[in-house]
Design a protein around this nucleic acid. Sequence first.
DNA 1: CGCTTGAAATTTGTATACAAATTAATTTAA
DNA 2: TTAAATTAATTTGTATACAAATTTCAAGCG
Lengths: 211, 211
Amino acid sequence: MNKASLYQQLKQDIRQGLWPAGAVLNQQKLSDYYQVSRIPVRDALQQLKAEALLVMAGKASLMVPPLTAAEAEELYQIRLQLEPMALRHAFPRLTFSLLGQAEDLLQQLEQDQHLSAADRGALNWQFHLILYQPSNCPHLLRLLHSLHQQVERYLGFQEISLNYANTSHQEHWQLLELLRAQQLDAAVALLKQHIQQAGELLTSHLRQQPA
Amino acid sequence: MNKASLYQQLKQDIRQGLWPAGAVLNQQKLSDYYQVSRIPVRDALQQLKAEALLVMAGKASLMVPPLTAAEAEELYQIRLQLEPMALRHAFPRLTFSLLGQAEDLLQQLEQDQHLSAADRGALNWQFHLILYQPSNCPHLLRLLHSLHQQVERYLGFQEISLNYANTSHQEHWQLLELLRAQQLDAAVALLKQHIQQAGELLTSHLRQQPA
DNA sequence: CGCTTGAAATTTGTATACAAATTAATTTAA
DNA sequence: TTAAATTAATTTGTATACAAATTTCAAGCG
């Protein structure tokens, strides 16, 4: 378990609820659990903190942040501003090859019935990423990646994940269709609607039964 | 020199050109220079890397990223999407007291003739931050803070900084005026124009004489 | 002359030990 | 009984030492 993989493992374990929202992670506990010294644990923790996947709890301890409707809404609103921008920048350099890759992902996402919520989240982001990659905007992509990772924590609930998936599949196919037909404005409009809808679904769910 | 202050010091030293664009920072060199062990150096470096104030150079070494017109443009375009959003969210909770604080900052920024480029950058961000704070969007604010820090590296050139300041002072005052008059839409429009203009000034300068 | 190969040097990653700080628990006073 | 203060426990921060990896550089080959 080296530095990079410890970071990945911790991130996954947080997503999957091993360290649930509100849990305080101290270095000793983690270094015991993962069988490494505190140094790589510190590194991983700090990186997760920088990505806001952990937050300060008190003066010096780190916590898995609670899930709140307010945060979810904020994250989706930021996505709503940035993803259309990414799509616009990428559009001129989108190739049929890329659209094909995106299509493959969609099919996989639809057909594989027994995917975990985490897997679905990852595939969903890969789909979007393929469309945004050609933007040649490294900072924007890094930022979006970070946002998606934060959002994924909210999709750990199977119920949400399923609802989410069903309503968005159709929109995903439509999006590809519009892009293939060179209908940028329509595609952007659909993307906006898609994000807004997903955000509203999630936040309304969270407000009904707070995590 | 503890962990937090080492991070601040390094960041400032990068902004001020002690470690110039393209420089490779290795832990040994820094730990010698700042008279601390490599552990806190590692921590600071990793944090700076997470904020994209340092980038990977090769497989394991970190570099002060080169300044490019393309990056500057990207950063400003992201700001252009996010800052209007922040202002809109903050608007309902903007008080005259806050507007007054912003005014004080502007005056300071105008009157103090012998401010360093770094100081001007910091004050400029503080001005914007006062207006965005009441948005109650912690993620958005964190993100904008990070973007501003990256942009500040580009304002180290006194020539740019001065030009920038002169053209933007008037817009800053106007912005406050519109906000005080509850003219949100006009204020947002002006803000957009302000950011776009500043971005274009910077990128055109960079394209003329690459850093 | 350029390219690959391999070894030496440098640099990063990790463990352990100890110092400093924070968190908790317990005592003491109002 | 509650709240403040002090002490004990835990936890984080840092230095040093060593292992693993990367980078550099020079020799060998085509």
